[in-house]
Design a protein around this nucleic acid. Sequence first.
DNA 1: GCTGATCCATAGGTAATTTCAATACATGTC
DNA 2: GACATGTATTGAAATTACCTATGGATCAGC
Lengths: 300, 300
Amino acid sequence: MSQLPTLRQLQFLLALAEHGSFSRAADAVFVTQPTLSAAIKELEAILGVVLVERGARGATLTPAGEAALTRARRVMTEAEDLVIAAQAAGEPLCGPLRLGVIPTIAPFLLPRVLPTVREQFPKLKLYLREDLTQRLYDALLERRLDAALVALPFEAPMIETHVLGADEFLFCCEPAHPLAQKPSLKSSDLAGEPLLLLEDGHCLRDHALAACSAGMVRSDFAATSLHTLVQMVKAGLGATLLPRMAVAAGLVDRLDLTVRPFDPPVVGREIGIAWRRGSARAEEARQLGEVIQGLLTPPQ
Amino acid sequence: MSQLPTLRQLQFLLALAEHGSFSRAADAVFVTQPTLSAAIKELEAILGVVLVERGARGATLTPAGEAALTRARRVMTEAEDLVIAAQAAGEPLCGPLRLGVIPTIAPFLLPRVLPTVREQFPKLKLYLREDLTQRLYDALLERRLDAALVALPFEAPMIETHVLGADEFLFCCEPAHPLAQKPSLKSSDLAGEPLLLLEDGHCLRDHALAACSAGMVRSDFAATSLHTLVQMVKAGLGATLLPRMAVAAGLVDRLDLTVRPFDPPVVGREIGIAWRRGSARAEEARQLGEVIQGLLTPPQ
DNA sequence: GCTGATCCATAGGTAATTTCAATACATGTC
DNA sequence: GACATGTATTGAAATTACCTATGGATCAGC
């Protein structure tokens, strides 16, 4: 087995690539220029390739250097992840954790779970970010988020998920609506019914569409949030489907709207937690999920 | 940023996990036991977690240790890959390269390209492995192969491919066969025709099936290789489709069988080279592919 | 074409780190 | 309680990493 480079040497290579000059790179990593110079030279000796083209006005990476750079970056992030993961294993759910939540979950689930989470993990600093599923997905992949609360299914490469609980859909309409008379509805009752939905991009829109394929979607109006949506129902523009979680959180309180469940088989969505496969905080995401799951299951 | 561990420390951790004892692990990495002991201790200090449970009969990893181990393995392989990739960049297509080839390509393509490859890259040591697509895929993922010659499409996560050339299918039958009269065939001419195919697992079987959906596959007989297949045609069991590459390599020479092309649009398969995304030898696989492509395109 | 500025390479000395040999300590075994 | 089998500690030696000082090359401006 040929000799391995040092992480330090790789770090120097990153700095060199970033600053385009031995001297400036040396400053950036707090060593002198000769030190960095020697380290790069030894790295080249180990790899048997010239990585850097030395010029009068700085340094440029050779193609081999570029290739090594990409891999060096990977090695460094993997090493950093190791440290973070190990430290987290020693004291789980500590420090900053960046959690994404979709807009149809955040306002209804977070008030219910955050107090307990805060109490149970006082050292945890949750940074919350509310956004659409697709953007949360991107953020997870780019390591800008550690975990995300989303609606399942959330099939995506490199993403792992755990189910936290079911969230059935309820039919919501004006009291004067014909269907308001029935204590519960069948999916087929929606046939021809004018339905209001969230605007495109919300996964709740897709799930609701799947649940009420019989309905007639009003594509001329689309709401930007569930709060807007119920206002539109109240204004007489049509009926809609709401997640029970939102109703339980008081979304339609004092609005004088009628809410009806569906007969089994109930339609709805599943709430889950997602994280990037191999993320340094995968285990913590799983743990956080368990806590939230425990908070969801008993009441409803 | 907290301090990073050394690759050496991670290597020691791997050895410790493998041998279950400080002393034996130390022997394995050619240092003394105190050295390894101190290194692990410092690693634990850096990570802030106890990784190893020291017992009277050796050492066991704690859960945190196991987690660190998995990541350490990743860091080490990434670092090793960096070295290999960089060395390969300096002197491409040198040393051992493990190349998988599917059985319906190997005997016909390799004799045509290997001499030139050998001549062009005298220092290259090609280790060839002939196997079915699925097993080559597994081997690529498990790093037991560096590249593979397969039939496209070869859609798979973590695998990248390049097209090397087209390989059209030819109709092969006995001279007395009714279709032998026609100089060329349409795909629809195969309607009701009893066709022989390779046994399950060969991708050529699937591609041929797709190409001649009109035909009537003889599922009572399936060949284990193209050589067997033509013998079965000769024995009067039916007709078949052969890749032009195999015919060009002399598969039916001296067999007194009739071979007919299809009218455009020609049916066939594409030959490609595949490698694991991020493999240390990805660039070399690409280069090797270019050479083979150059050898395939001019003649036919 | 000289001058100064900028940048990388080299040299030699020093501090820090790594490693080793020797030994101490802990724990099960007979 | 001696012994075998482990790991931890210690202090010295070798190695390595780093710094200061200096040299040489290239380019810009005059």
